[in-house]
Amino acid sequence: MRSIDGAVLDLKRLDLLATGDSVIHRLDARAKVLTTLVFIVTVVSFNRYEFTALFPFFIYPVVTASLGNLPGGYIVRKIIMVIPFAFVVGMLNPIFDRELFVRIGPFAITGGWISCASIILRTVLTVGAAFILVGVTGFLSVCEALERLGTPRTFTVQLLFLYRYIFVLTEEGARASRARELRSCGRKGLGLASFGPLIGHLLIRTWLRAERIHMAMLARGFTGEFHSRQVSGFGWRELFYVAGWSAVFVVLRMENGAQWMGRLVTGVLS
């Protein structure tokens, strides 16, 4: 299980990356959200035995992360943490799909192994794209983009509230949880009997806090409408960004870039 403090710190770190200033950061968030969507849809649209054709797609996360000045090691570490889960899911494929796919020397590789590898690769690409989107855009701008792409205001506003108070409440939760752990010997005391009241207390405090927040809003003239300043616009740069990457994805989807390059090289060598 994740330690609470660690998770909060991690969240803060990813969020802070978005305060950077780079070519990518300066783009309108909508362009980045749309491009990420196109990327993910293209990647998952391959059939389950596609493995090599996925590799050229690394160009997108790598280029975006580099242009956005994201710390590569950090992103890679975050992705690696997810791989075990992908492996558990993918592991079932070799068990159920034992048909021979390819034989390389003495090794017989079944379709199951190929599709398992494909699942892991898909995970790396899609998860990486999501982290990078947040890193170069920031959650708030993603929300804003969602709203300007048609998401109802009620939804995005409470999404913003959620995000704002994650930091406050996880810290509060961490304090309560630490107190409980310190006073319970080993596993004793960590059961439901103490969990219920602990969470209940946290819930009541949360509820009262929500009331105070609403009060603070009323005190400043809140009438149910949120005003926001619109900072960026969707210009030619954005259009070019979305269209350019989409074209790259479509080409890589139709032509197996790895295959193509590999043939070129092996052809030259032989």
């Binding site: 994650i166 949360t206 509820w207």
Partner: peptide
């Protein structure tokens, strides 16, 4: 009423906090 919107958001954050706290399953 409009007081529900902050409440929803804050309760969402609460779910996060709550999910991070474990208990031993009976």
């Amino acid at each position: 009423d409009d007081s529900k919107v902050p409440l929803m958001g804050v309760l969402g954050a609460f779910i996060f906090a709550a999910q991070m706290i474990n208990f031993t399953i009976p």
